[in-house]
Nucleic acid binder design. Structure first.
Length: 420
DNA sequence: TCTGGGGTCCTAGGACCC
DNA sequence: TCTGGGGTCCTAGGACCC
């Protein structure tokens, strides 16, 4: 058998973070609101018990909240990010195989701890709580999908005290039998309906279905799910942090926006924010996307969704360039006469920048950076954009680069860059 | 007059290339 | 008269997750 996997999940993470810094909130219903205080994005157990739904619009439920003494907090992502880093840091002390899955969840490979899984998990839980004040739940199983199931049991069943080691067939069977399809990680309404139509109505049906049949009637993701439910790992633990494949900045507007000018301002600032995020990760992008949406909740409004991407000749992390590209894309999709609710900028085709290039974006005027940019511009003019994409930093066409690396065109290009 | 802001992966069709 | 086979890129959309 392969090594067991643990899923560690922070309980009601944002609400718990607020409580750490304001202990008076303990034992009380707490909700955290999205940007602009639009809707509920986190709830304490007490708030859940009041029937407050995830995503509930705050203004719509304001009176009910006040009646029940619900304590409301605007979100503070800087705080949550910091708390998350502390929790992950502690988890890293308990295994070398740590995959940070989201801001409040991590998968841990527990190879080598097989004979004391539960003890190890309890120790982990106790340490995180003691050092950060954040309560976590731990589910242990043979695969990631089953670890999710085990984690759910650990949370729901108070008798388990936050930890559930689910390795015996009887326990797996019992847990799955008490769940709906949509409780599974990776199955939501649409997929549950499709599965239902082919006779698969419960998690146990899915586990016992023929994988080839499931593949044929749905997709490869569901086929993997069948195997994962049987305890055969199909989703590897990814302990190396992967670079982002896209970076987005978007916002809903507080009131309908109708003019191109206002949208240009918004999109420019989103581009700047996204570019900042990108530079912090030492990335540059070769593709800038923009999208525009009207308010889909207002049936009386004419609806329009537009999106458009612009390809850059050279991967860049320069705010002015990206904002310029974003505004060009925006102008090509903007249509007069709509009431816009949301807009966003997406940076794609991300590439790791070298140290030199990393410095470049922040201090373009240094002699070395000027030389490098000069070389890239000359190459761009001389060879055309395909070749430039390689030269810039190993764009997603990188495989071509490997295949053709002996071609004179590529070699010249690369050597010229290296010579800078 | 209210309903977030990030992400990931998969599929499918058309353009284009050799 | 008939009409390959294999591949990439791009775009759009669907579905899901936290």
């Amino acid at each position: 058998m392969t090594a067991p996997v643990a899923l560690v999940d922070c309980n009601n993470f944002y609400a718990s973070c607020e409580r750490v810094f304001q202990p008076a909130l303990r034992g009380k219903p707490v909700v955290v609101l999205s940007n602009n205080d639009g809707c509920v994005i986190a709830r304490s157990n007490e708030a859940k018990a009041l029937g407050i739904e995830m995503g509930a619009p705050w203004l719509l439920h304001r009176e009910k909240f006040e009646r029940h003494g619900v304590i409301v907090r605007s979100s503070n992502y800087t705080l949550y990010g910091d708390m998350s880093a502390r929790v992950m840091n502690i988890l890293g002390r308990f295994t070398p195989d740590l995959e940070i899955y989201s801001i409040d969840e991590a998968f841990l490979g527990l190879g080598g701890f097989e004979n004391r899984l539960e003890t190890h998990a309890r120790e982990m839980r106790r340490t995180v709580l003691q050092w950060t004040g954040i309560p976590v739940s731990v589910g242990i199983a043979a695969t990631k999908t089953l670890a999710k199931v085990a984690n759910r049991c650990a949370k729901k069943d108070p008798a388990r005290n936050g930890v559930f080691e689910m390795l015996e067939a009887r326990e797996i069977e019992g847990a799955l039998s008490r769940m709906d399809l949509t409780d599974l990680w990776g199955v939501a309404g649409r997929m549950a309906a499709r599965l239902g139509a082919i006779g698969i109505k419960t998690p146990l049906h899915l586990r016992d279905a023929d994988p080839a049949f499931v593949r044929q009637r749905t997709n490869v993701v569901m086929q993997r799910m069948v195997m994962e439910l049987r305890g055969v790992p199909c989703l590897a633990l990814e302990d190396a942090v992967r670079d982002r494949k896209s970076i987005m900045a978007s916002r809903s507007f507080g009131r309908p926006v109708t003019t191109l000018h206002e949208l240009e301002e918004a999109v420019s600032s989103y581009a700047a924010r996204a570019a900042e995020k990108m530079r912090r990760q030492s990335l540059a992008c070769a593709h800038v996307g923009v999208f525009l949406e009207t308010n889909r909740f207002r049936a009386s409004d004419a609806q329009y969704n537009g999106s458009r991407g612009v390809r850059l000749p050279v991967a860049s992390a320069d705010t002015a360039k990206l904002a310029g590209a974003a505004c060009r894309a925006l102008r090509s999709i903007w249509k007069d006469g709509y009431r816009y609710k949301k807009a966003g900028v997406v940076l794609l085709d991300l590439v790791k920048t070298s140290t030199v290039q990393g410095d470049l974006w922040d201090s373009p005027d240094t002699p070395g950076n000027k030389r490098l940019m000069g070389a890239i511009d000359r190459l761009n003019a001389h060879y055309g954009r395909d070749t430039l994409a390689y030269a810039a930093a190993g764009h997603r066409k990188a495989w071509k680069l490997r295949r053709d690396h002996s071609s004179p065109r590529y070699t010249t290009c690369w050597e010229e860059l290296l010579a800078v």
